[in-house]
Amino acid sequence: MKTRWLWHVLGLLVVLVLAWGAWGVAPAHAADPTPTPVITDDQVNAVAHTLYCPVCENTPLDVCGTQACAQWRELIRQQLQQGWTVEQIQQYFVDNYGARVLAAPPREGFWWLAYVVPPAVILAGLYILYRTMKQWYRPRQATAGEGEAADAAAASPSENAASSADDDYLRRLEEELRRRT
């Protein structure tokens, strides 16, 4: 019983130390003859979650159930024990197993296109929308104190325009009711 309690404290300490190390404050004196830190499954999964299984299609490494994935998770555990950062581990996986292990293409070279094209197309779409709207947009002449002019200026707060909102809806509804009944 006593030893168990001790383990918990030790485990907590290890987590704290690791968190500290991950913070990047100090590059951790990993060379100390202290026993290698215990890496929890959660820490392994947190890293594995950012990676994709290199052999199964589109399965994150933390949820993949194959033997191969178990080996990779074990590898991640060892790398974490040796004090590697997440970025280092990711880089190792990319070097060894190709860029497809990352959840999204790396931002370099050709792969920039992945990030550039959608916004560009959307912007182009917006431009087309703008031009079309300009072509279509013919505001109603502000005759009855209603309309865009009134909105923009807000100077002529003719109450009848505002109160017509509800009335308009009800009128529509009433009309519908009359028509349908």
Binding site: A99, R100, P105
Partner: peptide
């Protein structure tokens, strides 16, 4: 379509996943 394009152009597969 991007992974296909990537494989054609760079010869490398990439994953386009949730973060994207």
């Amino acid at each position: 379509i991007f992974p296909i394009l990537s494989e054609l152009v760079t010869g490398q597969k990439v994953t386009v996943g949730p973060p994207f």
